Amino acid sequence: MPTTFWLSLALLVVLALVFVLQPVVFHRHRTPVANRRMQNLNTYRSRLKELEQERDEGMLDESAFETLRDELELSMLQDVGPEEARDPEPRREGRRLLAVMTVLLCLLIPLGAFYLYGEFGSRQALAEFRSMQEMRSGEVTQQDIEGMVEGLRQRLDNDPNNPQGWSMLARSYMQLERHEAAAEAYKGLARALEETGEGEPASAWGLRAQALFVANQGQVTSGVEAAIEQARKRNPDEINALSIMGIKAFRAGDFRQAVEHWERILEVAPDHPQADSIRQGVAAAYSELGEPVPSGVLSDD
């Protein structure tokens, strides 16, 4: 993947850590326990002096003084005693533990996600992408290409419902002129499309018919006919099937049938890359029939 993607991802992780750790690291501490104890003790001493002064001035007798003093001491113990029992260290330890756990989770979650995604999600797609890029770079030898294609085929043995992989494998075999192998790859593509519902299986069967047609030096064998049957069962207007059927009809002298097949291609796919060649075939069939070639067949006027 591009370096920019990883840098952006790392930045997002850092930002997430900042937001998560900020309330933990920069948590405003409450008034320390020692300060609260000192404040309570000072309040106690001040109030005790006031009681002693009132006793000395005769405003309180000894009995009332002792009662109020006991109440003050009890109040002081309630305020100071429990706080003394609270150790600030466990709370600091708890905050440190929370900070450590938060950091670990923030690191382990994205790392775990990367691992699982790489292990089960994108490993196949990434390998295929790299293989395609290497083959397109022109910096590899024929032996390297064949090795990568064989590696892709082996991966598809473990992941048969991978339409992208089968499509790449079939195209690679066609480029290597291994047409029989390409035909088998197109068969795998058709089955994968049937299983996943991600595309049109008819096209895969039509491409298999084309690969077998080329592999047999342009002969319409039983294998070619079987592939055409599978393609037209799913789509009667599958282009590769119509093209081969037109060739077969033309060779058999059934020029009318050839015209029908080829003209149908021009109707359903007027922008077909081989449209000019198909028009020439239509014109040749009309010539064999002794009929004038309709206007527009050989030109767009």
Results as ranks from 00 to 15, higher is better:
residue 48 L to A: 11
residue 120 F to G: 00
residue 55 R to V: 04
residue 61 D to H: 05
residue 125 A to Y: 10
residue 122 S to I: 15
residue 95 R to L: 06
residue 128 E to W: 01
residue 88 P to Y: 12
residue 121 G to D: 13
residue 103 V to H: 01
residue 77 L to V: 13
residue 67 T to I: 08
residue 48 L to E: 02
residue 84 E to T: 08
residue 141 T to V: 03
residue 85 A to E: 14
residue 98 L to P: 02
residue 77 L to N: 14
residue 74 L to P: 00
residue 141 T to G: 01
residue 142 Q to E: 11
residue 56 D to G: 08
residue 144 D to V: 11
residue 118 G to N: 07
residue 111 L to I: 12
residue 61 D to W: 05
residue 118 G to A: 06
residue 129 F to E: 03
residue 83 E to M: 15
residue 143 Q to P: 01
residue 72 L to C: 01
residue 103 V to D: 00
residue 90 P to L: 11
residue 71 E to I: 07
residue 103 V to W: 00
residue 68 L to I: 11
residue 138 G to I: 11
residue 96 R to T: 07
residue 120 F to Y: 13
residue 77 L to F: 15
residue 98 L to D: 06
residue 59 M to T: 10
residue 147 G to K: 08
residue 74 L to F: 05
residue 112 G to P: 03
residue 72 L to D: 01
residue 50 E to L: 13
residue 107 L to T: 08
residue 58 G to Y: 01
residue 108 L to Y: 02
residue 72 L to R: 05
residue 66 E to W: 05
residue 48 L to D: 00
residue 65 F to W: 10
residue 69 R to Q: 09
residue 116 L to W: 15
residue 62 E to A: 13
residue 79 D to L: 05
residue 59 M to W: 14
residue 99 A to K: 03
residue 48 L to Q: 06
residue 97 L to D: 07
residue 109 I to E: 06
residue 56 D to A: 07
residue 62 E to S: 13
residue 74 L to D: 02
residue 126 L to T: 11
residue 138 G to F: 10
residue 143 Q to A: 13
residue 94 G to H: 13
residue 84 E to K: 06
residue 143 Q to W: 04
residue 50 E to F: 08
residue 48 L to H: 03
residue 109 I to P: 04
residue 143 Q to L: 06
residue 144 D to L: 06
residue 101 M to Q: 11
residue 70 D to K: 12
residue 102 T to W: 03
residue 60 L to V: 02
residue 98 L to G: 09
residue 102 T to V: 12
residue 122 S to K: 13
residue 81 G to M: 09
residue 76 M to L: 15
residue 132 M to L: 14
residue 80 V to P: 05
residue 122 S to Y: 13
residue 55 R to C: 03
residue 118 G to K: 09
residue 147 G to S: 12
residue 115 Y to K: 04
residue 50 E to R: 15
residue 137 S to Q: 05
residue 96 R to H: 06
residue 131 S to I: 08
residue 138 G to Q: 08
